[in-house]
Design a protein around this nucleic acid. Structure first.
Lengths: 102, 102
DNA sequence: TGTTCATATTCTAATATGTTCATAATTTTG
DNA sequence: CAAAATTATGAACATATTAGAATATGAACA
């Protein structure tokens, strides 16, 4: 049996870049932060918390949903958004503790 | 003396978004990874490793330098690039261990 | 039914980003 | 000095992202 010796971790840089781009925006980061603390929130709640205009926020939310970061569930007249890919929170935490001087 | 009670960590989302955007690109991520393992590298070395064309890579490098992520030092005909903001490596490590399904 | 609320979508404009190509600047070498 | 190597720069272009306005859809409710 042939075993790979210390296989250099294969990273899909395209994927990684795609993922980072998908969250790299102040509003989207805030949304992730909020949903990491609160399970689900309606669009309106997110609007108020982020201070982002409804239409624009909707765009961001739709995008993140399509990219698998968020899930959404319609209940009556409301749509509840939640984190689907909770791993992105780790990236947030990382930035939070990073002290990146920029 | 008045002490702030459990101050909710203030995060500058603009800054965070800016930082993420600054590295959110397959070539730039690779550059960061390479320089996290090797201290300095010339443009040519980075070219070969990333498979990115010289001019394009140069643009990326210049951008990252201007944003404070990389430093550069000219030595003779070569220019050595190095990580200036090593904290970005943490973000890479995070992605690496994330198993983000995307 | 008609009105209001919550959300999504479409359209348009502005701006930013990624890419390529040609060329410049500088250093080394023959 | 001329040629080759290394890197940067600028123009031009394509594409993507961001933003906001207007409008559509559908649910709730008087």
């Amino acid at each position: 049996m042939i075993t790979k010796v210390a296989p250099t971790e294969e990273i899909d840089w395209e994927k990684a870049g795609y993922l980072l781009k998908a969250i790299a925006h102040p509003v989207r980061l805030q949304v992730i932060m909020l949903l990491s603390q609160q399970q689900n929130m309606t669009v309106n709640e997110l609007c108020k918390e982020t201070g982002c205009e409804q239409s624009l926020l909707s765009h961001h939310l739709t995008g993140m949903r399509l990219k698998g970061i968020l899930s959404s569930a319609k209940e009556g007249q409301f749509v509840y958004y939640a984190l689907k890919e909770r791993n992105v929170v780790k990236i947030l935490d990382c930035i939070r503790h990073c002290d990146c001087i920029m």
